[in-house]
């Protein structure tokens, strides 16, 4: 029973030592925010040679860890800086393109709305001059508005057909 509690005490002491932090490992005040733990640890270390040895080893290991010499080479740093600058430039160009497309979309939408309103009034005036029923000039307005899209669609279809025909003749 007492050996179990002794083991618990050792483990507790070692955990406190390990978590105390690099500067506290070799200092007498190990955990400044936990005075009770400090007092307990100090009392334990005064009587436990193995935990004292662990504390000394831990302090030495931490000193050793801090002196492991790892340095980035100059070429790595400069290559990284170049890559980062290149990527920054790409991102900037992309952002500028997105901004340009957004502005263009907004301008096109605005123009379309304005021209639609003007055309509507134009068709209405023509309809009244020609004594047409309102449904007639309204259909005319719709056809006129859809005309560019219809023409583009017909041209694209014709182009595809043309390409398909030619590729067929090449294969044949």
């Amino acid at each position: 029973m007492s050996s179990i509690s002794n083991n618990d005490a050792h483990e507790r002491a070692r955990k406190l030592i390990a978590l105390a932090g690099p500067d506290a490992l070799s200092a007498s005040d190990r955990l400044s925010d936990q005075p009770l733990s400090n007092a307990w640890l100090a009392a334990h270390l005064a009587t436990c040679a193995s935990c004292r040895a662990f504390a000394e080893n831990a302090a030495e290991m931490v000193r050793g860890l801090r002196t492991i010499p790892i340095a980035a080479e100059r070429s790595l740093v400069s290559t990284t800086q170049i890559k980062v600058r290149r990527r920054a430039l790409e991102l900037q160009h992309h952002r500028e393109r997105v901004w340009l497309v957004s502005i263009s979309c907004a301008a096109v939408t605005l123009c379309a709305l304005l021209s639609a309103a003007i055309l509507w009034h134009g068709f209405e005036w023509l309809g009244s001059r020609a004594h047409l029923a309102s449904s007639v000039w309204q259909v005319g307005f719709l056809v006129f508005c859809m005309m560019p899209a219809l023409v583009a669609a017909i041209l694209l279809l014709a182009k595809d057909r043309h390409l398909a025909d030619h590729s067929g003749s090449y294969e044949g």
Binding site: I70, A72, T80, R85, A88
Partner: peptide, 23 residues
Amino acid sequence: RRDPDLLDRLIEQYQHRLLRYLM
């Protein structure tokens, strides 16, 4: 702002620590 000069400085400043951590 994606300031490239700031990034250059940060790369210089943290070069060894970051590499050590990644190692």
